[in-house]
Simulated assay, not measured.
Amino acid sequence: MDRPGVYDAVVVGGGIAGLSAALVLGRARRRVLVIDGGTPRNAPADAAFGFTTRDGTTPEHLVALGRAELEPYGVRFLDGVVDGVLVDGSDDRTGVWTVATTDGATAQGRHLILASGLRDVLPEVPGARETWGRGLLQCPYCHGWEVRDQALGVIGCTDASPAQALLLRQWSADVTYFPHLLGPVPEEDARRLRVRGVRVVDGTVREFVPDEAPDGGSPRALVAVRVDDGSADGERVPCIAVFCEPGADAGSPLVSSLGCELRDDGCIVTDRLGRASRERVWAVGNAADPAAHLVTAAGDAYRTAVAVNAVLVREDCATVPDTGGVVGESV
């Protein structure tokens, strides 16, 4: 289909998932535009871990490497935040999406791939936002090695939090579980925590106590957790890192305007190929799965991009008239 100015796919989000999808489609000789707002979910972290050949690479460098790899394939980039979308045509299955950014730029694409990630919903505890990504962490597999053999904690956020504390014990013998707002620990969970050697400190977490910033900047590391024990100051429990299971919110003006179905965890509902509930809309990475790590997000985006290209081929066959000649022959 030769529609001047219309991309085969517009990828919203330029993190690992978005860049992976763009790479596959670019190599398939599709016209691809990546629109990126420059705020990846892992930006607060010092480095990304567990990505083979890139273990310990900073998030910014990973993105730079990904962008450089796309240059030979003609993938275009547009810096901006998409805040709305329109469909050109009465039928979602054949129309063209027009996306608009907050600064007034527009672009058209036959398919949309949402790789815009999500917003982590952190515990409502003073110090959480300030220490997120270095002192307050989510994934032991991503950051457990860096804080191994030190005083660690887990704050109760979901029913899975006791299991997270059991898991974290693999990295340190000094692990404290704070049930926080979850209330008393269920008997079987309490037994497992005892067997695993995890200390339980009851009471509401009052504060994540940050370390003093050595350069006078914003503090990011932790030194302790302060728990409300009925006293004026509360109990101070030493912890250099606390792990939590944050909530997820993949919502945005774009997702709202599309009307995509969302799961209870706030992410976009997709089928196994990444197809959203709206025709010609796909979701990859954390936009569809809050637990997707870098490797998982890249792999899922690869699979989705292959599926998008297959649909584009079918659309091309359905819309290009059959002239009775040989493909590529002049008529």
Rank of each mutant, 00 (worst) to 15 (best):
M1F: 08
G5E: 11
D8W: 01
V10L: 12
V12Y: 01
V12K: 00
A17L: 04
A22R: 05
L23Y: 11
L23V: 06
G26Q: 09
R31N: 08
I35N: 01
G38H: 07
G38R: 06
A43R: 14
D46L: 09
R54V: 01
D55M: 07
H61D: 12
G66Q: 03
A68E: 13
L70R: 04
Y73C: 02
G80T: 12
D92Y: 08
D92G: 02
G95L: 11
T98G: 12
T102W: 02
G109A: 09
R110E: 05
I113T: 01
R119F: 06
P123M: 02
V125R: 05
G127S: 04
W132L: 04
G133C: 10
C139Y: 03
C139S: 14
R148A: 15
A151F: 03
L152P: 06
V154C: 09
S161I: 09
Q164N: 05
Q164Y: 05
Q170Y: 02
F178N: 14
L181E: 13
P184A: 15
D189L: 08
L193S: 03
V195I: 07
R196P: 05
T204Y: 11
V209A: 10
V209S: 03
V209F: 12
D211F: 01
E212N: 05
P214L: 11
D215T: 12
G216S: 09
P219W: 10
V223Q: 15
A224R: 08
A224Y: 09
V225H: 00
V227M: 06
G234Y: 02
G234I: 01
E235C: 07
F243E: 01
C244D: 13
A250Q: 00
G251L: 08
S252G: 10
S256K: 09
S257T: 07
D265M: 07
G266D: 00
A276K: 01
G285A: 15
N286R: 00
A287M: 00
H293V: 14
L294H: 13
V306I: 14
N309G: 13
A310C: 05
R314I: 11
E315F: 04
T319C: 08
V327H: 06
E329H: 15
V331Q: 05
